[in-house]
Design a protein around this nucleic acid. Structure first.
Length: 429
DNA sequence: TCTGGGGTCCTAGGACCC
DNA sequence: TCTGGGGTCCTAGGACCC
């Protein structure tokens, strides 16, 4: 059996911890740049505020109902996430926990007796909220996909389930599948949901009754086959080993407002490259390919679904893999030169590092000894990372990042980093 | 005026080999 | 009229996730 623990309205719950005045109050959290609504409390959902809705469109409704609005505060959410996961680790043993995302983890509960599962699930739910202030829901079932089905129903029918649902018999699994639409299944996105509905397959139960060859043909090959098998109760999605290193590292942002001058774009790209290089060094890796892209501004046609402009990008394979910010930045700035079109307005830029390998495995080549100045470069990076980590972000940086950053994001409603900065601690009178 | 960001996995198709 | 077969490697792009 597999359990999944999912934090309820995670970002909103984090914002509420230090704000007792908001405990019964509707709250929403906005995406970067104060663009869209990405987290809502139940009270906010009840007001008809939709997930992913642009802030400027929802603004009137939010103000009318006096909803508390926050910009995203990743320092706070990251720290709270760590506390939640640590708490779960204490209860079930960290070796059984797979952290799936900032607000979710799977737990291998196959060694726990069926009769004990309810107690364990309730203990997780109660301990996490007591130790961290974050409410969670728990779903348990024979496979990962079915545990997500259980979790969703646990959340949806909180009054009945008290946030815990266990599907431990075929009968319970079947009932749960009947109550789940295909678009609510983990692994079925918008495209497949439309396709399935057209084929008159509406519920998870109906999908679970299809045969495997049908799934291969209609749901993207082996991915679809795995999905149907999981719905039938056969585990196909393995637990991931912890601390797996990323195969690609990306940093991208919308600009606060559209930008057309190349100097600002280069500053932004240098900033994102520095951030990506930091992530790369943190997992003790180097990258050989760097990809830079710009998104041009497009006029939004009234009445049509919003779309970004088509990404304009370019990449280069470096002669020698590196994690040094200065080397990566140099390449990134050259890429900007080759993509940039004078006079064009851009709304977003991004940097992606790939061909990632451990930093012990750097291959030199005939013309570039990998050791050239490497030791000195690494020491410099270590000093920068340490100071930036302990003081505050970007205390030390390369000059190419710029000091004014006219292009940087909007985030008007950011809360203090209560749990990670001494000078932002909550004050009690 | 204003529409997020960071990932993974898989497939199809082209280039190339013998 | 007829135009090998089988394999590998790589890339671009689609689909999904939170």
């Amino acid at each position: 059996m597999v359990a999944i623990v999912d934090c309820n309205s995670f970002y909103c719950s984090c914002e509420r911890i230090f704000r007792p005045d908001l405990w019964e109050h509707p709250v929403v959290v906005l995406s970067n740049n104060d663009g869209c609504i990405v987290s809502r409390t139940d009270e906010a959902k009840a007001l008809g505020i939709k997930m992913g809705e642009p802030y400027f469109q929802a603004k009137e409704l939010l103000e009318k109902h006096n909803v508390a609005v926050f910009s995203s505060n990743y320092a706070l959410y990251g720290d709270m996430s760590r506390r939640v996961m640590d708490t779960i680790g204490v209860i079930v043993g960290m070796e059984n926990v797979e952290i799936y995302s900032v607000d979710e983890c799977f737990i291998d509960v196959s060694k726990i007796a069926l009769s004990q599962l309810k107690d364990v699930a309730e203990s997780i739910r109660d301990t996490v909220v007591k130790w961290t202030g974050i409410p969670v829901s728990v779903g348990i079932a024979p496979t990962k996909v079915l545990s997500k089905v259980a979790n969703r129903l646990a959340k949806k029918h909180k009054v009945v389930t008290q946030g815990v649902l266990i599907l431990d018999t075929p009968r319970k699994v079947e009932q749960a599948l009947h109550k789940t639409n295909v678009e609510d299944i983990w692994g079925v996105g918008r495209k497949y949901a439309e396709k399935l509905n057209k084929m008159n397959i509406k519920t998870a139960y109906e999908l679970s009754q299809q045969d495997l060859q049908w799934a291969v043909n209609h749901l993207g090959g082996v991915v679809g086959e795995r999905l149907v098998r999981e719905l039938k109760g056969e585990p196909c999605i393995d637990f991931q080993p912890p601390l797996s290193v990323k195969k690609m590292i990306a940093t991208s942002r919308m600009f606060g407002k559209p930008v057309s001058d190349i100097a600002s774009i280069k500053e932004a790209v240098a900033t994102y490259t520095a951030r990506a290089a930091e992530k790369l060094r943190r997992q003790q890796c180097v990258a050989q390919t760097i990809h830079v892209y710009l998104i041009p501004k497009v006029e939004h046609v009234q009445g049509q679904k919003f779309r970004h402009g088509a990404s304009q990008g370019c990449y280069v394979k470096l002669p020698v893999a590196t994690a040094l910010t200065n080397e990566l930045t140099k390449a990134a700035r050259q890429l900007v030169d080759s993509i940039y079109k004078s006079g064009q307005l851009y709304t977003k830029a991004g940097v992606t590092l790939s061909d990632i390998i451990p930093d012990t495995a750097i291959q030199g080549n005939l013309f570039n000894a990998p050791t050239t100045n490497k030791a000195a470069g690494n020491r410099l990076m270590q000093v920068m990372d340490n100071i930036n980590f302990s003081m505050r972000k970007d205390m030390l940086k390369l000059a190419s990042i710029g000091t004014t950053q006219h292009w940087s994001m909007k985030c008007k409603f950011q809360s203090p980093r209560f749990s990670t900065r001494w000078n932002e601690l909550i004050k009690v009178q």
